[in-house]
Simulated assay, not measured.
Amino acid sequence: MKGFRYRQSGFTLIELMIGLTIGLFILLGVVMVYVSSARSQATSESLARVQESGRFATYMMAREVRQAGYMGSCPGSVNNLLDTSSSHYVEAFFDLDSPIRGWTGSAGALSSHLSDYLRGDVLLITHAARSTNLKAKGATPANAASISFDGDATLAPQGSILLISDTYGCDLFQRANSGNGALARGAGTGGKQPGNVPPKTPWSHDYKDDMEINRLNAMVFYIGEGPGGEPALKQYLVDPALGGGKTPLGIDTVLVEGVEEMRLRFGIDADGDGAVDTGLDGFVAAKDVADWKQVVAVQIALLTISGGNVLAGVEQELYWPFDSNGNSTPDKVIAGDKSMRSVFTTTVSLRNRLP
């Protein structure tokens, strides 16, 4: 049988070049789809991050602003039994009659407490809405040096600042002893500052066992350094019980990372009707507040940032609702990088200042 001879065949150089060209176009398309998908995902994640940071930050601040000035059942001004002559006594931290204060573009009088302050406005809130869950045991005469109570004093440790109140008045003091059974207000507080006036100074009045026993909350919101040195919304919590020796007053905590700047305006009620005054001077910057007791609302504006070069080739245009001096003219956000940003704004009324 005559054998068959197979002819060898293959691609010509031209066919090979055409095939390579088609393959390169297909590969380029796949790469472009991948890059577009990755960039879209990064943009979505950045958008979600700035939105989550802004919403959570405004929620946290608004919750505390609403409680500013809460004094339990106290019908009037606080009888302050703290040692105001102490070098560690900071009036702004313990003044429940002016429970909200601010500083424009600096840490102002709080500079020594906010060592990592970076930029923007600063907000101080004071209230006594933190319950100790303690119940007074019997009556407390005005000349008594301590208050007998039932319950676990975990939320009222030695050095904590306490407010006792009823419908006749209220007193602010620092707990001098520890343990359960009694809350003493002696001059000694275990080395925690600022201490009290001499214990022979009477309470504002006789108390019955229906008194409220709450713990003072004073906190400062500001833009400081986060864990990686990036800007973050921080809270300086004023609580002498947390410090030892003569360390004054508190600790700082990162509340929300990725908050780059904060601006504040304060609503003024000069005519005493319980509402923000109309006109150009209704909301003003902290530097223009003449009397903090007239503040009934706060406008909070926060600039959040995602980090990362997610907006390459795109210019984001954002505006503050008011400028750094508190004027109502929108102010453009100037950004020198390609990070995604967003501005969040909320207006919060002080519930304890409403009629």
Rank of each mutant, 00 (worst) to 15 (best):
A139W: 04
N133P: 06
I305Y: 10
R101H: 08
S148L: 09
F149P: 01
G105S: 02
G308T: 10
W203P: 00
G258Q: 04
G29E: 05
V31P: 01
A297M: 07
A156D: 09
S36C: 03
L249R: 10
S148Y: 04
T346G: 01
I18Y: 04
H113N: 10
L47F: 12
R351S: 05
T347H: 12
S73F: 11
S160R: 04
K200S: 10
G105D: 01
P231H: 11
A335D: 12
V35P: 03
A48I: 05
A156Y: 04
S328W: 07
R39M: 14
S324R: 15
I18V: 15
E64N: 14
V30Q: 08
G190I: 02
W320Y: 06
R341C: 00
N180F: 03
E317T: 14
D337I: 03
M61D: 04
W320N: 04
G105Y: 05
L110A: 11
A184R: 03
S40N: 15
I305T: 15
N80G: 13
E15T: 02
P199R: 13
H127Y: 11
G10L: 01
E52F: 09
V314N: 07
I26Y: 00
V333G: 09
N133A: 12
S339Q: 09
K208M: 10
S165K: 06
W292Y: 02
G307R: 03
V298C: 04
G336T: 12
V238E: 00
Q51C: 12
G267M: 10
L114V: 11
I147H: 00
G151S: 07
Y236S: 05
K234Q: 08
V296W: 01
T154E: 13
M61V: 15
W292P: 08
R351W: 08
L24I: 15
A286V: 04
L16Y: 08
G313Q: 02
S36V: 02
L183R: 00
L28Y: 09
S86M: 01
G313R: 05
N325K: 13
K293V: 02
L27P: 02
T329N: 15
G244E: 11
D171T: 02
S106C: 01
L47W: 04
S37L: 15
S85Q: 14
Y59K: 13
T201A: 00
L28M: 15
V348T: 12
P240Y: 07
